[in-house]
Design a protein around this nucleic acid. Structure first.
Lengths: 145, 145
DNA sequence: ATCTTCCGATCAATGGAATCCATTTTTAAA
DNA sequence: TTTAAAAATGGATTCCATTGATCGGAAGAT
């Protein structure tokens, strides 16, 4: 992880489909070197994924919410297995505080969200925050080069 | 938005750097058509961004947290302007419930997180949830083709 | 200090992929 | 059914990524 790697990562966070040639020009090194460095970072796990952010509202999923849920530590294994298999779950974190889990979900309607929340009750008490707007949408963080 | 567009979006959500040729083969249409469809979806805003998910822990930002904050509606404009300019903010949503905002952040240390939370106090009361682990990391949702 | 080895970079060439454009097909509307 | 508009195709061209050979520099051993 040197300055050039950070520069590559910054560019890729802005646009994952940028060409090797463009990266090469911006970093003042050859494109085979860019390719090799990217492979290294993929192998090492520094680069987790190249992912496309789509407009879920336009795609028919206008309801976004964060669900807090208090899961008994004993049930965590089962809970993880369940939550991982639900396609509507965009992210799930184990967090500190009164509720142990924070889940980000999208749904076609509030009714379907409600149904999902009901199905979660078997794991523990929930508290749901519906998203009204997103002033800062999913983005990366610029690393110091 | 037809079946082919959804197929393209599903593939791009899995891997944003997939080639036009590979997409063409999987969708049984020519690569110029794939290119045209992608441009349409970029123009229409259906595709928001191609973005690279990196391992922030490995990159020196091991502290991830969700900050709830109760912002007075009057101060929202100012708050949005501020929060948008903080690089450590990976996402910010306006939500229902006792706290009006939910902010996802990463930091180098708990001390720096603390400093940031202190700087937020001028906007309102906060409640922070530190992330212990992430059973489901940022991902897309498969659309029905 | 010198030699050796290894890692990483570059260059040039080749193979492959993306774009462009003319043509054809399909779709939707009159 | 006819026509206009939109979208898909195929082939040609241009552009890009990958490969393999070579060079240079840094680290370690003698």
């Amino acid at each position: 992880m040197d300055s050039i790697d950070r520069k590559i990562l910054n560019r890729l966070q802005q646009n994952a489909r940028v060409s090797l040639k463009a990266l090469a020009k911006e970093c003042y090194i050859s494109s085979p070197t860019i390719s090799a460095r990217m492979h290294h970072m993929e192998q090492s796990g520094m680069i987790k994924n190249y992912y496309t952010l789509i407009d879920y509202k336009k795609a028919g999923y206008p309801i976004k919410a964060f669900i807090n849920i208090k899961v008994d530590p004993v049930d965590k294994g089962e809970f993880y297995k369940y939550i991982e298999a639900v396609p509507n779950v965009l992210e799930c974190n184990c967090v500190s505080g009164e509720f142990s889990m924070l889940i980000k979900v999208i749904f076609e309607s509030t009714e379907l969200l409600d149904t999902f929340i009901n199905s979660l009750q078997r794991f523990g008490k929930t508290n749901t925050q519906i998203v009204f707007s997103t002033p800062v949408d999913v983005r990366g963080m610029r690393l110091n080069e």
